[in-house]
């Protein structure tokens, strides 16, 4: 490893070498240490689905913003928060209900139901936007996931959509973002894959908030209706079909798999415990006391 040419020594490799050098300070302890490490790996392997269920545990791939110590401390804080309230698995397109304490509300608590249209940022700054149409008025609320004032996050319908974000719902007909406030949570079988809702929404005529035609959206059916020839042409000019072959870009915008494994191995045991606890609680809750008929 040390003999490799300098341009092959990536930051992650460098860190590994630094790490081993520190660990093998005492030559006697070295083999033992190695054994432990291998043991750890065999027992603490998080399932690969974790990167989708808990994406905020991965740090931002931007190199200038990386700070391993801060990331680790943040992960500890996130686990602490998750032990206080249940932050369930959800995706963009899922319908959530968030109950948060609100000093301005009459009952000091406010509940908002809506579809998650965006999920962004990492670590303690992770946040999501819920959207709903209430009284024919589109409303959006942004929540920070690890906000201590949030009391409860419920998933009313767990599903995915065809796109990574649903910001185009702002320009779609209101029926596509209207959800009942008193919706009951839909029960799903254990271990069933998350369904993908392949609904295609219809947009309102222009003017739009963004140039949706340039974003290669799968979940919109009628973009082409409202485009002029000029817009179609410029959209074509702005296409970047080569980007999927740009390995360097991909590398810079993602966390390498080895690093992901390391991170999830660190938090796996606690997260797994919480999942089991949740399952137990769900079973407890699913027993409904029969009400008196007379």
């Amino acid at each position: 490893m040390m003999l490799a040419p300098s341009r092959l020594v990536t930051p992650s490799l460098l860190r590994q070498t630094v790490f081993t050098r520190v660990v093998t300070f005492s030559t006697k302890a070295a083999p033992k240490e190695k054994e432990q490490y291998s043991n750890k790996q065999t027992t603490n392997v998080a399932p690969t689905t974790y990167r989708f269920i808990y994406p905020e545990f991965l740090p931002d791939p931007k190199v200038e913003w990386r700070n391993p110590i801060r990331e680790k401390l943040e992960r500890l804080d996130m686990i602490d928060r998750r032990s206080q309230i249940d932050i369930p698995e959800f995706y963009v397109g899922s319908i959530l209900a968030v109950t948060s304490s609100d000093p301005h509300a009459a009952g000091k608590v406010s509940r908002f139901v809506g579809i998650c249209i965006q999920r962004e940022r990492c670590g303690l700054r992770a946040r999501f936007i819920l959207r709903n149409v209430v009284d024919e008025q589109g409303v959006e609320v942004l929540y920070e996931m690890y906000d201590p004032t949030i009391q409860k996050i419920e998933v009313l319908r767990l599903e995915k959509r065809l796109d990574d974000h649903l910001l185009y719902l702002r320009d779609a007909l209101p029926e596509y973002s209207t959800f009942d406030t008193n919706m009951e949570p839909e029960v799903m079988e254990d271990g069933a894959p998350v369904p993908v809702n392949d609904i295609q929404v219809r947009l309102r005529p222009r003017p739009w908030l963004e140039r949706w035609e340039r974003q290669n959206l799968k979940g919109v059916s009628n973009i082409d209706e409202y485009l002029t020839d000029k817009r179609r042409r410029t959209a074509k000019e702005h296409e970047k079909p080569w980007e999927k072959y740009d390995l360097m870009k991909q590398y810079r915008s993602t966390i390498p798999e080895e690093e992901q494994k390391e991170i999830y191995a660190e938090v796996y045991s606690q997260l797994h415990q919480m999942e089991l606890q949740r399952k137990r609680n769900k079973r407890k809750r699913s027993f409904v006391k029969p009400t008196k008929l007379a």
Binding site: D102, F112, R127, Q137, G138, E140, V141, L142, Y143
Partner: peptide, 11 residues
């Protein structure tokens, strides 16, 4: 755009 938890409206 509003601060977290403060609703943003469509109009």
């Amino acid at each position: 755009k509003q601060k977290p938890k403060i609703p943003k409206f469509d109009s």
